[in-house]
């Protein structure tokens, strides 16, 4: 039974020390507010799973929450490298982290396998790619019908998946629109699913017969957080804050600057602060 709760409660109830967690969002609808709440709550020893661990995982790694990262592209999209992640990998600061690295195709297939209840994903990939030599979770299988050798990776089954969506309705059905990424697969692959939404409306099931709706019984907890994806965006609500992504490159370059920024904007902030951050980015205004 889905619960409507505050963001603090949703994270405290569902994300625990040592969990594997996927904060998913493919450039669009990245659950920044939820990640900041996890940082404020000081949750430890997380295995962070995400295809594109951008700013939020840079922040979580820099604040020492992660023991392991599973990913396929660890960059600040269109800007450059993730400097806190680099500091952890290259200098073990603030702690050493383990990395498990895949390609996008592998991660996307692995989420789909997780959602499908399969133990592994099979696909045509990693041909000639050196990741297959350094990641023991990349193996191969032979097609029993054609003899073709295919790549295999374990299904992704997070303890909890956390996403941001445009709308939930009063029953707890969740609507995702625009670039839908792997959020549906991440939610269905996880034991528990937490969703933050821009707004709660009467009914999302009549938008379009094929709209991407996650039925209420696939979700554990919903928290309304207006602007909760910033500086990522919510299609139909506000635009991507590209300037903030460019700015992050500077903030994350220095440990001291990073820590003071995190204190001012995350530790001493609240979920309610996100609404003001998107005020100038709102569409149709």
């Amino acid at each position: 039974m889905v619960k409507f709760v505050s963001l603090a409660e949703a994270i405290a109830d569902n994300l625990h020390d040592g969990d594997s967690v996927a904060f998913e969002g493919f450039t669009h609808l990245i659950p920044h507010a939820a990640a900041h709440e996890a940082i404020r709550q000081g949750i430890k020893d997380l295995t962070l799973i995400r295809m594109t661990p951008d700013i939020i995982y840079d922040q979580m790694i820099g604040m020492g929450l992660a023991k392991k990262v599973v990913f396929s592209y660890a960059g600040n999209p269109g800007v450059g490298l993730l400097r806190r992640l680099r500091d952890a990998v290259e200098n073990q600061h603030p702690r050493a982290i383990e990395i498990e690295e895949h390609s996008h195709a592998a991660m996307a297939n692995a989420y789909e396998a997780g959602a499908s209840g399969l133990p592994c994903a099979i696909f045509r990939g990693y041909k000639g790619a050196e990741l297959a030599k350094v990641n023991p979770n990349i193996k191969s299988v032979t097609c029993p019908f054609t003899g073709e050798e295919l790549a295999a990776v374990p299904a992704i089954r997070p303890d909890v998946s956390i996403i941001h969506a445009q709308k939930a309705d009063r029953r707890g059905n969740v609507l995702v629109e625009g670039i839908v990424g792997v959020q549906k697969e991440a939610v269905l692959a996880a034991k528990r699913a937490v969703v933050t939404v821009e707004e709660i409306v009467e009914d999302v099931t009549k938008v379009h017969p094929n709209a991407c709706v996650l039925p209420h019984w696939t979700i554990t907890a919903i928290a309304e957080v207006k602007g909760g994806a910033h500086p990522s965006y919510a299609h139909g609500y506000y635009d991507r804050d590209n300037a903030a992504y460019l700015e992050w490159d500077k903030i994350s370059a220095e440990r001291d600057l990073f820590e003071s920024w995190m204190k001012a904007n995350v530790i001493d902030a609240l979920p309610g602060d996100f609404a003001a951050r998107v005020a100038d980015l709102e569409v149709n205004k």
């Binding site: 960059g75 990939g125 990693y126």
Partner: peptide
Amino acid sequence: PGGGGAPE
């Protein structure tokens, strides 16, 4: 950053 979609 890594390969992202590039290997496939």
